[in-house]
Design a protein around this nucleic acid. Structure first.
Lengths: 328, 328
DNA sequence: TTGAAAGCGGTACCAG
DNA sequence: CTGGTACCGCTTTCAA
């Protein structure tokens, strides 16, 4: 396998032209006579010529690759983002290195220094780095952040706060009017995610603010790892009563809570409502859980475009949508 | 950002040695005096030297990258595989290009030709290519297949057949003894996946054979796209009665069927059992569905090792395990 | 044990 | 419009 593939020199020799001509036929065809371009291109195709990216990278200084860093590829939120970014890159002839930090800042930093020399830039999703570390990295390599709000660095944010506030407002409203089996004393229980991330802060703050504003009591707890299994355990002990609204950091946690609460005999959504976040699970439950659906694909696409088109709009927010919400 | 990073020439000049010496300090330290090696290495570290992979690739002819092709990155089966392969590659200083074919043979082929010149080899998971096309590709570039059984090409297989047979044997057994609410007339309904893949054939064949062998009537149908939504719709119309066993191609389909059947008033698993495959969902249902859990991570790891260590054992099967199965 | 020099496969500048 | 040539950063003979 892998016979020696033809280079521009082979093509040049075959055509009796200089290899610069062959190169130009691909990179600056305007400088050449249409006939020459045509000739070069067809023989190149005949020979099965494919440019050597390493050589191009070396001579242009542009590697033709971007790095995409995620904390956890098995979190269903990321694959759609990866896919979208990849599609954009592909259309521009650019490849994507995938790097997974495993939620570990050390590993994230290691990945960055491992790749920084080889890529045109990074898309760093849900970075676990400290502000200092992240700023240092982004100063060395062109980067676009996803779900991290660092002033001065291009970033795409998927805030869920607005929709969470809406949900809580609806909840407070129904509660006040004693509608639909909601007891007057209903509370909100927020179960946060495992990491200190921008999303974490944003969602929690929104929940707390909205509850304060609407005079709804709220309790806050957190996961350590964020798996279904763990949140199920949390749900077994969670202080919840009929009339409450349980808000989870994400859909996986929401599902664990949902199942645990159901097992405790609480009827959902009639007695207790469970609201998740992300909207990227490949499966649903029955009854289907409401969620704040985030534009993961949109974020991947936008981030890639910002990175590759070097566009300026440096802080982009993509709207979320509250779906399957029974109170609106 | 991106100041000019130091090259071996910078280090060489600083030390008053030739740049070949610097190069050797990294690639063939045995050839140098320990003092020189030490000297070069420390000043390299001081300067923050990072080798330029493109240059290395160009001069050695080895790109230091492998390509990992999957049909659908949002299918929860693949991320653990990607992660595992990535870890192995990383440990060897090799990066991973991720490519998604979107279940489209054309796209898969396009990705292959786009990458083949830039990678040391491919891991091709669940290829959708015809045998001819795939053989052509694997002749040009070193490749390891996952879940595709092409003689002569190194491959890692995750067969589910044995465990499916076991499940059906259990089912037939219980049915014969009229145990646990299983009506004597119970049947097996197999709902296949959307693609003609090796796994598809393997699972379906196993189900049909085992049913024939045990004298259990079986019906076979198929998904067109394989989403939760679609399989839910299929479940609404599926011909099922109390005492039946429903086997789905994967867990996503199983969940759709499960919810639809539950909505039809069938109690699961008391009246109807639903068995999935893969065991990679980030969430579970309640009651938790049994599944044939495949070693996705193991496959990623093995495939990467086979590719990078150029080892010979060319056909590897990784065992599956039937989990949460109520009849064993 | 080290240096000099020739590539690897392209790009891009300078002439003509 | 096209050819000649230097160069990108590193590896690898070949000599010394």
């Amino acid at each position: 396998m892998s016979e020696k593939r033809p280079t521009i020199v082979d093509i040049a020799r075959l055509l009796g032209v200089s290899h610069s001509t062959v190169s130009r036929a691909f990179t600056h065809p305007q400088l050449l006579s249409p006939r020459t371009v045509e000739l070069v291109r067809t023989t190149a195709a005949d020979l099965g010529y494919i440019p050597n990216r390493s050589a191009q990278a070396l001579s242009t200084g542009r590697p033709g690759v971007i790095g995409l860093l995620v904390p956890d590829i098995t979190n269903p939120f990321f694959p759609p983002m990866i896919r979208a970014a990849q599609r954009v890159a592909e259309r521009r002839g650019i490849s994507v290195y995938i790097g997974e930090s495993d939620n570990d800042p050390e590993r994230e930093l290691a990945l960055i220094s491992r790749f920084e020399r080889q890529v045109e830039g990074f898309i760093i999703a849900s970075s676990r780095l400290s502000e200092t570390a992240l700023r240092g990295a982004t100063e060395r390599v062109r980067s676009v952040l996803v779900n991290r709000d660092l002033a001065g660095v291009p970033r795409v944010l998927l805030p869920a706060g607005e929709e969470l506030r809406r949900a809580i407002a609806d909840f407070a409203d129904h509660r006040a009017h004693g509608a639909a089996g909601l007891a007057a004393g209903g509370r909100v229980a927020y179960v946060g995610g495992p990491h200190r991330s921008w999303s974490q802060g944003e969602r929690r703050a929104a929940v707390e603010e909205a509850c304060r504003e609407h005079g709804v009591p709220v309790t806050v707890s957190s996961c350590e790892v964020g798996t279904y299994r763990e949140s199920h355990r949390i749900g077994e002990a969670l202080e919840v009563a009929a009339g409450d609204l349980v808000i989870a950091f994400d859909d996986v946690i929401a599902h664990g809570l949902f199942d645990a609460l159901t097992a405790r005999g609480l009827r959902i959504p009639e007695q207790v409502m469970v609201l998740g976040c992300d909207g990227a699970l490949p499966v649903e439950t029955s009854p289907r859980l409401p969620t704040v659906r985030l534009a993961a694909s949109g974020a991947g696409r936008r981030a890639a475009e910002m990175l590759l088109d070097a566009a300026d709009p440096e802080r982009v927010e993509l709207p979320a949508s509250l779906v399957r919400w029974p109170l609106s």
